[in-house]
Design a protein around this nucleic acid. Sequence first.
DNA 1: GTTTAGGTTTTG
Length: 723
Amino acid sequence: MSHRMLHLLLQSVLPLGKGCIFISLCSLTLIPDFFACCCLSCVFLQDVVVASGFTVGKSPTVHKDKLHTFNLLLSGDNACIYVRTFINKAPKYTYVRLGDLKAGSVVNVYGVVVFFKQPFKSRGTDFCSSLKITDQSNQKIGCTIFCEKLEDHPKIFQIGDIVRMHRVKTQFFNDSITLVNTFGFSVVTFDGVAGSAMDPRTSSRSFHLDQEDRQTVEELRSWAASQTILPPVPSSPLSAVQPKAYFDLTCQLLAKAPIDTTCTLLKVWDGTRCPHTLLKVIVEPNAIEGPTSFSTEIENLIANVLVYDNHVEFARQLKPGDFLRIYNLRAIPGSSKVPGLTSSQSEEVDHLAFHLHGGTAYGRGIRVLPENSPDVLELKRVIEALPEDGELNDSAMLEIWSTPPESLGKNGCWMERSCGHDIQSVTLSELKQCDPGRVHHVRVQLRSYEPRRLHQALKLYCSKCTSIQDVPDDELVASLFSEASKDPGPCSPPPWAFSGWVDIPGDSPGSSKRALSVHLSTQLMSEGKTKELIFLMGSTLEETCRLTSGYQNIVPVRASGGHMALLDLSAPFLFRGRKRYYGCRQCSEAAAREPCAEGVELIDEKIIAEALGVQLLQFVLLMKLELQDGTDTLEAFLWRDAESFFRVSAEDVAANQEAQNSIRQTMDSLCPAGGSTGECPWLDLCLTVYRAEDDGGQNQTCYQICHTTITKTPSTQSDPAPA
DNA sequence: GTTTAGGTTTTG
């Protein structure tokens, strides 16, 4: 009968001395000294308690105490009590239909967005959002929101989005009621697509969303779907753009460059091909933020967007890699005068330029879309499905090198090309004369490589901003954990969490136990998945690692401003067994949120990262190899194809010694320590040649090993040197 | 418990 889970509604709570509480509804007695470490005063009436890992047994004292005939007994180390508290019970809000608004009151409303402007700078102290909403009463109500902080504004992405606003005042303007935010204003926005995820967009620290709210949103969604009076969504991919049209473009920013004080160039793509020739804008390479050159294939997919006047300042804050929606973008056909330099192509007639004119009319503006929004996920799918391109623009790769010398051991092995290119090998001196953008075969020896400390070859890579960083060492991570657990102060758990305590097993038998605060997703709890994901507070790095044997996913959290927050992203945001996962500090909007695990078979790092707003960093291997043949030497990167080169995954290298050893053995074989180059095996490699920017913003030619795999065969024959 | 804006297309 162990590991039963009981959901008990506490009608009354009577502490019965140390380690024991009495629950009157079910009259079950909890006996263990487990409670010695739990603070019973934090359990209140109406709280829901979940006990797991207890044994239900006949109460031996039933005749004496007249209590329930059964009691719960702690069994084993895995017992947990989770308490769902309602201490900070949200007040009940009432919402006024838009047809029932009266001037001169403060109300809460729901509405479907039929028009909106992104926040713009007002002449006063605030940003101003302008929107118009409607509901089943068919009234269209204008709303004006003034907030100093951008994040407090409604996060509206599209016509049809649904907003819930608290504390807006009604007032007359031009004979109709309008809504303006007032003290205590807050807003939550939802996607308007019927049946889509109920993913609330808000900066409100604590907002309440119950079943009634979900129902209201779903009702508005299906009502809106049945309405024909709602304006159409003016979105279009590049492949469907009509000349002269105004449209909304969902895209990724690849690079940007200031043109003059009133105009900035944004180079964007959405993975689709525009049937019209796109305007090429030529700017000084050192004025460009992001890659300065692209392959012809990619170049043909890039739309050059010129943004003017008030949008220039907003564009300044954008980063290459950002996913954007540009509202009311205009496709301008024919030649047009562009400030700065344009190629001769701008004189031709059949091409499209894209202008985001000044002003905010028609909602003109730019918005950064979050990584996990459905439109961005779709955009990523389209972009990832594009045929892979040979040319790379990894300027970050050139900057990351560290060079500590160290020496290593022996043995032989061969390489095998898997590229399928049917081309003759060239010598290194010939290769250096070749133009970028092609692949070549070479027959070379490995003269040296960096880093000699192989663990430094392991890096963390952000696919969004393309930055590469070192994996933080344990000392740094441990210090972040101890910093985070210092004096946490009071912390109210998020509304979706069950809270409880978990015993940390002592590191040796008999050593004292420590109980730490944990939070679990209500939804996972209800599915009985108590071991799949915990949010763990106040643990040391070492304790966190020890708990990974009992829980599949551990997200370390801390108390911040009375709320649960993630640790600094320099620390892993997730522990899965021996694997640790990191997030990009630049690209994440991290917060402790409940993952949507409905119907999810396996809760993995991707699902958790997405829920937490973390841009997951990928483990990669990065090395620089000095190659030689009889004619020259050449430095080549081993990066994109490093995993297949070594036949290991970088993630495994991060987590296990075996994978690390196999890389060491390979490198020892290819480049025996202390040996003369005569002992180095000859390697058949496939190399790609490409241009990338160095730290000085200068283009330089780079070489990278691709499509080449180690074959674990000890070398017994000596290969002849190439001619 | 003050102000801002109050949709409606640049003129590149």
